[in-house]
């Protein structure tokens, strides 16, 4: 099989200030489903078009932001080979036992030099709702809310992203689809393990471990418009959009969950092959790269994070 090693973003765990408000936002508005609530109060959510147990984990805390993001690997043995490579690179690796999150097998985890925890796992139970696989309809359970199809990617902010770039390319076998270079250095990288234009992205930022957004895949530009209708109808705080990214070409809206964590709904984007060259952007054109129609960054893009 052609696609080996790291397959895709599996799940992200976010901190929220108000759990009932967060659950309502992610289920009724984004269109996810609650799978279960764990004994420690963490809530596990998924899109109906995903097979695996969950893709979003919400943890009640007194600050908003990012706990961790986990990628699924193709084979159980990949966990051992990646652990060896990560340790050889110089990052200490720890182990999370199977079942620490319901439905998820053993995980390995480590800290990036940008201050973000990343994990790998192989096993995930499947959970309902999920797509049927024999004579399947386009959906089994009728989509609701913004009709999110999957947790797609995340953008994280922190220092030392040149080191993240080297690590993801050399140790996890990702490719860099696009990058922004400013006169004073690397500003941003979009990394992919797959044929998506990005699976994870980083922006250089002085404070470590910060979270810019988690993105949900929508089917079409029409669905992005429908999402915009929902944002206004329910008075959800909007950052920017509907608009388009020059980088990845995705059609997009940035908005905020009830704890101030930024979300994105995202449609389109080009297909990436691992032999494609890296697309590059410079300081004069980064505005168009980030927001293609506005052609400039908004005040919040580089400064508003949780």
């Amino acid at each position: 099989m052609a696609h080996t090693g790291v397959l895709r973003p599996g799940f992200i765990q976010l901190r929220v200030l108000d759990m009932p408000a967060a659950v309502e936002h992610y289920t009724k508005r984004i269109g996810l489903h609650q799978v279960t609530e764990g004994p420690d109060g963490r809530v596990y959510l998924k899109a109906a078009d995903e097979f695996d147990h969950h893709s979003i984990v919400l943890r009640r805390a007194d600050t908003a932001g990012y706990d961790l993001m986990a990628f699924k690997v193709r084979e159980e043995s990949d966990l051992d080979s990646f652990e060896k490579r990560i340790v050889e690179w110089g990052y200490p690796v720890d182990h999370v036992a199977a079942g620490e999150q319901p439905g998820i097998g053993r995980r390995i985890g480590w800290m990036l030099e940008s201050g973000h925890r990343i994990e790998l796992y192989h096993h995930a139970d499947q959970s309902e709702p999920k797509p049927r696989i024999h004579n399947p309809d386009v959906w089994d359970l009728e989509p609701h809310g913004m009709r999110a199809r999957r947790f797609d990617h995340a953008l994280l902010y922190g220092p030392n992203i040149q080191r993240n770039l080297e690590f993801f390319e050399k140790v996890l076998d990702f490719s860099c689809a696009e990058r922004v270079d400013m006169p004073d250095g690397l500003l941003a990288i979009w990394l992919t393990a797959s044929m998506k234009a990005h699976d994870i992205a980083f922006v250089n930022h002085p404070e470590p471990g910060k979270f810019h957004h988690a993105a949900f895949d929508l089917e079409s530009w029409m669905d992005v418009g429908h999402a915009a209708d929902i944002l206004t109808r329910y008075d959800i705080s909007v950052d920017i959009g509907p608009t388009r990214h020059g980088i990845t070409r995705g059609q997009t809206i940035y908005f905020f969950d009830p704890s101030g964590n930024r979300n994105e709904v995202f449609a389109g984007g080009y297909s990436y092959y691992p032999d494609n060259p890296t697309r590059t952007w410079d300081a004069e054109n980064v505005g168009k790269g980030i927001f293609y129609y506005e052609r400039q960054l908004n005040d919040a893009f580089l400064s508003v994070v949780t």
Binding site: L17, G65, S237, V304
Partner: peptide, 14 residues
Amino acid sequence: CRLPVGCRRGGCGI
């Protein structure tokens, strides 16, 4: 200057 506006939901601190 422009009023500092971020998440409008108590999370980002702007």
